[in-house]
Design a protein around this nucleic acid. Structure first.
Lengths: 120, 120
DNA sequence: ATTACACTTGAACAATTGTTCAAGTATTGG
DNA sequence: CCAATACTTGAACAATTGTTCAAGTGTAAT
C-alpha cells in the first residue's frame, strides 16, 4: 500500500536482528529513560546545583538563597519550582516565609558521585 | 568614587553576614560547580542515556548504536563526541569501524541511583 | 587507482532553557 | 483596612541545545 512504510529493516554490522532485539529489551522503558533525562537535566545547571548544595546543609528561605547565590528572588523561585516538580525539594511556610528543604536522600549520593568524577 | 559600587550589602533574613560567608565557603568551588553542571547535563538527554545503557552491556560501533536507537549515524556521532569530551566513553578503531566503550566506573553508579529515584 | 564503507564534521534550523521584568498572590503588622 | 514583606507567576528575550543535511575524512576491498 504505502511504499514509504516498506523500508528495509535496520542492518546491524556485528550481530543479528535477534540479538538486537535482545539488546533493546534490556534498556529501561521509554518512560523511565524520559524521566531519567528530566531528572539529570535538573542537576545540569549551576544555579540549581548551588541551591542544592546550600540545602544540603540547612533549610533556607527564598530570599536567603537568592542573597547567598547572588541571584534575584524571582530566578531562585523559578528554579525551586523545578526542583519541587520532580520532588527534590519541598517547602513549608512560616508566616510569610517559605523554607525549602531537600526532599530526597538520593540527592546527596548523586552530588557526591558527580564530585568524585569531576575531581579526577 | 563610584556610587554604583556603594550598594548595600545583601541582607539575610535569618542569619548574619558572617554565617552567610561560612555557608558560601562550604560550597564547592565555582570551577567544580561548573564542571559538575557540564557532567550532569550530559545525562539529561534521552539519546545519550540510550547510548550509555547500551554501552553498559557491550562495546558497539557507531552504526550499530544508530540502528539500535533509531537515530542517524551523524546524530550518534555528535553525541558520542560529547560523551568522549568529558571522558565517559572512549573508542578504538578496528579497520573502518570505531568501537565505543564506557570509560568510567561512575557511569553505572549514577545511572543506578537515577533509576532508583525515578522508580519511586 | 577507484569505489565503497564507516564515521566525522560544520552550518543551519527549530526547540528548549535560564534570567529578567512587571505584575500578581499571600501573609503579617500597624 | 492599608501598607509592607516574601514570594510566585507569565511573558519576553537571548543563549544553548539536538538533529539534520551535505560534504568531508580515513580505511579497506577490488
Amino acid at each position: 500500500m504505502d511504499p514509504i512504510k516498506d523500508k528495509t529493516p535496520p542492518l546491524y554490522q556485528f550481530f543479528s536482528e535477534k540479538e538486537a532485539e535482545r539488546k533493546k529489551a534490556l534498556l529501561p522503558s521509554e518512560e523511565k529513560i524520559s524521566s531519567l533525562a528530566t531528572f539529570f537535566k535538573i542537576f545540569g545547571d549551576v544555579t540549581r546545583l548551588r541551591i542544592l548544595f546550600h540545602l544540603l546543609e540547612s533549610k533556607l528561605s527564598v530570599g536567603d538563597l537568592a542573597a547567598l547565590t547572588g541571584m534575584t528572588d524571582s530566578a531562585i523561585s523559578h528554579q525551586l519550582k523545578q526542583l519541587k516538580s520532580i520532588n527534590l525539594v519541598y517547602c513549608r511556610r512560616h508566616g510569610r516565609t517559605q523554607f525549602y528543604s531537600l526532599a530526597d536522600q538520593h540527592v546527596a549520593d548523586i552530588l557526591k558521585i558527580g564530585l568524585e568524577h569531576v575531581s579526577e
